[in-house]
Design a protein around this nucleic acid. Structure first.
Lengths: 229, 229
DNA sequence: ACTCCTAAATGAATGGTGTTAATTATCGTT
DNA sequence: AACGATAATTAACACCATTCATTTAGGAGT
């Protein structure tokens, strides 16, 4: 896109770049070429511009990735959360969070591997989560801990879906011939189910984990409610 | 370490490098300088050797990182897993896994960001784990799903370890409009708590998630046992 | 003991990366 | 109209992973 007709040096008559345009182009580039092919140079090219031009609108690569993270987080629709009962709200929020991450799968790899900075506004997630847990009646000192457990699961699950088994350790997936032979026994266990619909398994396992955490929270507040106070 | 006394070209009299030596030096380098400072060049220097020498023992950077991953996974002691009752085994295993990750935090960052290859041997662990779940009486099609949920949590927790700044920097001064929503109070509390004992929170949240999943599995097999297979 | 293949180091070179500096042209303001 | 800030360019830098050609040593076979 965006031809490169040997534009002359100097400020252009009509503005070419915007921070937002850059962020959007970054998402597109990731979507097309995957995380492997992502670079400032390629990004600039896709915008019909030379690389250093980007640095007028973005501090550096890390900053850019955090801006992508911010966009992702902002894209989470929070309207339903306040009106749902807290267990459903928690489940719903988990789903939305994961879906937001999965909207641009290749971006997840980058985002996850890049240190978080202020402008990512990732605090929004904790505000929302914290609100739900507080509403559930979770003791204040426990809230942060549960939020992190929750987020760990969501992010981990997203990574698992994006690049199944491709990280810390492997759960057999079975589309690679080599892996198939090596993990026969385990695959045997999962059987045709695994081979047939790996992504479905990923989703189900995410739901499983989500419900497990919600149940644990329910037990916790239940105990506390019955116990004292 | 390992002086660089202008060694002359050609095969050395006594062997200098080994794949294992390289892997160990890689861990050290990561431990000292963090993932940011890790490069083949620095690694070579730390071994008193020129960069291309590494490539006689290691295919490339990705291969090396996968060797580190293998070492990390191998360091998990599985001897207790077979003898413990399955819920304890599961919890124990989760702990060991997390500890292995914590032993080399900087390496986790690399490992998570690098696609897996054959030599990681990470499947071995999950064969063990699958066996445990089957012995626990988990329905076969559910085993893979539970293992994936388990891994999601582990991966997510690993990422939490890697990027701990994420949660601390939640509520600075309310200069951003987006931040002044209605849940500030909770975060205020969480923020203080986080700053005070961050690593403890990470560990506790991991345990919480682990127990939540184990409890869910227990409920599942319990139901099945009562309900009648 | 000589020959020859292979293994393991070096040095030089390549193509890529993120980033900075200097230059130029245009916008918006005084 | 002058001028500083803005936003593009080109040029350059340091680094990085990797490859190639060269050099030296070990080991196997005669």
């Amino acid at each position: 896109m965006s031809s490169t007709p040997h534009r002359v040096a100097g400020r252009p008559a009509k503005p070419i770049l915007t921070q937002q345009r850059i962020v959007e182009a970054a998402f597109s580039l990731l979507d097309e070429g995957g995380a492997e092919d992502f670079s400032m140079g390629k990004l600039a090219r896709s915008l019909g511009v030379r690389t250093p031009a980007l640095y007028n609108h973005v501090d550096n690569r890390q900053h850019l990735i955090n801006l992508m993270r911010r966009d992702m987080i902002r894209s989470i629709d929070q309207s339903l959360i306040a009106v749902l009962p807290w267990p459903e709200a928690l489940f719903h929020f988990g789903q939305l969070f994961r879906d937001a991450l999965l909207r641009v799968p290749a971006a997840v790899e980058l985002i996850v591997a890049t240190p978080i900075t202020e402008e990512s506004e990732s605090g929004l997630i904790y505000e929302e989560l914290g609100g739900i847990l507080r509403r559930a009646g979770v003791a204040v000192p426990r809230i942060l801990m549960i939020m992190i457990a929750f987020e760990s699961l969501v992010v981990g699950a997203a990574l698992d879906i994006v690049a199944p088994g491709a990280h810390v350790a492997v759960v057999p997936e079975g589309n690679s011939a080599a892996r198939e032979t090596r993990h026969v026994e385990v695959l045997e266990l999962g059987g045709k189910f695994a081979r047939q619909a790996r992504s479905t398994v990923s989703e189900q396992s995410f739901d499983f984990g989500l419900r497990a955490i919600i149940a644990a929270v329910e037990r916790e507040v239940g105990q506390r409610d019955h116990g004292g106070m």
